[in-house]
């Protein structure tokens, strides 16, 4: 099977401006060389803590940010090369679901209009035909058709996220990037939305990039995972393999930090000391070395290269 999405060496730097004339005086490397590919019908998860660059990576893939370097190919088409009308057309194939269902829907538009907009914008359908498609999609995500006449604030968080998902799927995209789609929801609602995403993936043949900080959630939905730390992809593996035996010390600590659901097994956890460094002035060498329990002399000096300990697996650490 060929990959639907291929991300190669993706970089996104934000300029640091200072002074009266807003001159560029430096760059924050928010995403620094991220590579992965996702096969059609699969889910790839990007995990990491706040500020690791996972959200920026997702948005850069969709060209909501202009990439600084690297390439993104969707079904073989280089997205970075697209401009203007070509890019706008390509957006039909790639959609995004956002974290906060309270902020991602225009409060002054009725739900029906919100769902219709993608169809109108891309000239797919209008009028009665569009209305039928909206109703069908509402049903697909588990909402009654008459909800279309209401405003977003009349819905609960879970229902709003269903609306946001419906809107993303209106023009039959190939790729959906879901940025923390369940983080803002109550625990008992999260599973409903995850199930919906899984069902829709099967039914519509979607491919997901799932961005999350929650390792419990990621484990339940993804086929492969990329762990990010300070803009770098430190490890990439099949989901099962990663949870069984994380290779990178950061992945190991991250997994270990997740509270266990069995009180009888309060485990001895690896507790990382210190905080995530400021991305504007990352430490030299391996960016993780100041917090790494296994740091060696070499980690302070040189950036670890990407290694492939087994086919398809990637780890960026001097231990391997």
């Amino acid at each position: 099977m060929s990959a639907l999405l291929e991300v190669e060496g993706l970089q996104k730097h934000f300029p640091v401006r200072s002074g009266v004339f807003n001159r560029i005086t430096g760059a924050i490397r928010v995403v620094e060389g991220v590579s992965f590919s996702v096969d059609k019908g699969k889910t790839f998860a990007l995990v990491g803590e706040s500020g690791c660059g996972k959200t920026t990576a997702g948005r850069t893939i969709l060209r909501l940010h202009e990439p600084t370097g690297g390439s993104v190919r969707l079904a073989g088409v280089d997205l970075a090369a697209l401009e203007g009308e070509g890019l706008r057309t390509a957006r039909r194939d790639m959609q995004m679901v956002f974290q906060n269902p309270f902020g991602s829907l225009n409060p002054r538009m009725k739900v029906g209009k919100l769902l219709e907009e993608p169809l109108v914008v891309h000239g797919i359908a209008s009028g009665k035909r569009a209305q039928e498609m909206v109703d069908a999609m509402m049903e697909k995500v588990g909402l009654a058709a008459e909800f279309g006449r209401r405003y977003p604030h009349q819905f609960s968080g879970g229902q709003r996220q269903r609306i946001a998902i419906a809107r993303a799927l209106m023009c039959s995209p190939k790729l959906v990037i879901a940025d923390e789609p369940v983080s803002a929801l109550d625990v008992s609602i999260q599973s409903q939305i995850l199930n919906l995403l899984v069902d829709l993936r099967t039914e519509l043949g979607l491919t997901y990039v799932f961005i999350s900080h929650d390792l419990n959630v990621v484990r339940r939905i993804s086929d492969a995972i990329g762990v990010m730390y300070l803009g770098r992809l430190v490890e990439r593996a099949e989901t099962g393999a990663l949870y069984e035996r994380p290779l990178h010390p950061y992945s190991e600590a991250l997994l270990s930090a997740v509270p266990s659901l069995e009180p009888s097994k309060r485990k001895e956890r690896i507790i990382l000391s210190g905080d995530v460094p400021n991305p504007a002035s990352p430490p030299p060498g391996c960016v993780f070395h100041p917090r790494c329990p296994k740091a060696m002399e070499v980690c302070r000096r040189s950036v670890p290269p990407d290694k492939e300990p087994s086919p398809g697996r990637l780890v960026a650490c001097h231990l391997y």
Binding site: R91, M96, N100, N106, C171
Partner: peptide
């Protein structure tokens, strides 16, 4: 986020301003 969301759908600037920002 709804503005980013609209942009991700591929809506043109003019429409974003008139339909989503202005109201």
């Amino acid at each position: 986020e709804y503005i980013t969301s609209v942009r991700s759908i591929g809506v043109k600037d003019g429409r974003v301003i008139l339909r989503h920002v202005l109201p």
